[in-house]
Design a protein around this nucleic acid. Structure first.
Lengths: 220, 220
DNA sequence: TTTATATTTCACGAATTTTTCACTGTTATG
DNA sequence: CATAACAGTGAAAAATTCGTGAAATATAAA
């Protein structure tokens, strides 16, 4: 079990590290969000304990950033017990939330709970259409076994397509749901992304059907 | 997928709404039980996410009231983690129970699980008239099992016909509703499209009846 | 900063769709 | 039967739409 502990207070890091190692895990440390993001790019961890308030890059922003590329369980540690923080934490993809002051025992209990939840439902979000495999939880797409390098928007579009398989989608609806209500750009932006996505899906571009005069749909 | 979100905290409603809409669903909001009951009387929803503690009318009472008239799946959201609440929730007909703080992902997973349990086949608006099958959600039309390739206007006219089955439609009304109020062209344009549509529907052209001196109607 | 990557805008051209319109066939009624 | 109004049809003209490449802009990394 590889645990990344992110907190600017060395004392807290040390306490948590001790507990992790006592239970036979490997503990790695980062003193702020920026460092955590870099470490996650370089290596894989099983779970992250992330403080909210830190210099340079706060915990929320760090998690957001990390989750763009990898789906790693995160437990937020916050000095503030405010409901707002808590919700925001979950919104950006945190899996649990612990309020300071906490007992290390409680944190470790939650670590186990979160890891169990992750291991209990492993292949829930992986779907395949012929040689096209889409792992939404792990944010991976494979074309005939080979990993396709998609841009963030391309992932989002593809995942949205899969979740709405067989349903006719207008450009407006796509922009609304994938880009967000606050996108005030050109409709045709969608087309360009579809073009790129299709080119990355190689032969499986066939699943993305153009509905002339309307938009697109994913049909497998 | 129409989801009614009932919670007195706007923040929680917003987070859940965002998740629902990303997955292509429609989210509706109510701030308390009273409002939820009223909304359920006025419209149908596929599932309800119901908080327990709310002003005016609590979640349990609201569900009780709603279930008197309609059988809608309900997932309870509770701030209290007490076993008693949980048991009481199931007793009054809740289908699942989530304890706050929850991760929106988990809630959505449960939404899908509950909906799947309710009906393995997702409701969609597919209608058939003899060998003519019309799938409005997926924008497909089949003539004796074979996919008919219609142009955008032909789809729109056919869908409009189906929605107004048996009703006499003037050319003016068709132009107004299918083309839009801002169409300033020839009436007879309709005829040409009817011609094309009929030719694509093959033998099922018979469903499009000419009303001499008036317009057309779809009769099956 | 520079460099790289990702996103957005945009204009061209090919293909498709829509519209118009003249002509033909049909129907209703005096 | 004659005729006038109306609907069906084919073909040409006009308009729209989509895919694409390239440039511009935005965002992130070094």
């Amino acid at each position: 079990m590889k645990v990344l502990i992110v907190d600017d207070e060395e004392m807290i890091r040390n306490v948590l590290k001790e507990y992790v190692e006592f239970e036979g895990g490997e503990a790695y440390e980062a003193a702020d969000g920026m460092e955590a993001v870099k470490m996650c790019r370089a290596a894989d961890y099983d779970i992250i304990l992330m403080d909210v308030m830190m210099p340079r890059l706060d915990g929320f922003s760090a998690v957001k950033e990390i989750k763009k590329n990898k789906n790693i369980p995160v437990i937020m540690l916050s000095a503030r017990g405010e409901e707002y923080d808590k919700l925001f934490g979950f919104e950006i993809g945190a899996d649990d939330y612990v309020t300071k002051p906490f007992s290390p025992k409680e944190v470790m209990a939650r670590v186990h709970a979160v890891l169990k939840r992750y291991s209990d439902e492993p292949a829930s979000d992986i779907v395949s259409f012929e040689g096209l495999t889409i792992d939404m939880t792990g944010r991976n797409v494979y074309v005939d076994g080979e990993k396709a390098e998609l841009t963030p928007k391309e992932y989002e579009i593809l995942f949205y397509f899969v979740k709405n398989k067989g349903i006719a989608l207008t450009r407006e609806k796509l922009l609304m749901d994938v880009w967000g209500f606050d996108f005030y750009g050109d409709d045709r932006t969608v087309d360009t992304h579809i073009k790129m996505l299709r080119s990355n899906l190689k032969q499986y571009r066939k699943f993305i059907v153009t509905l002339r005069g309307l938009g697109y749909k994913f049909e497998a």
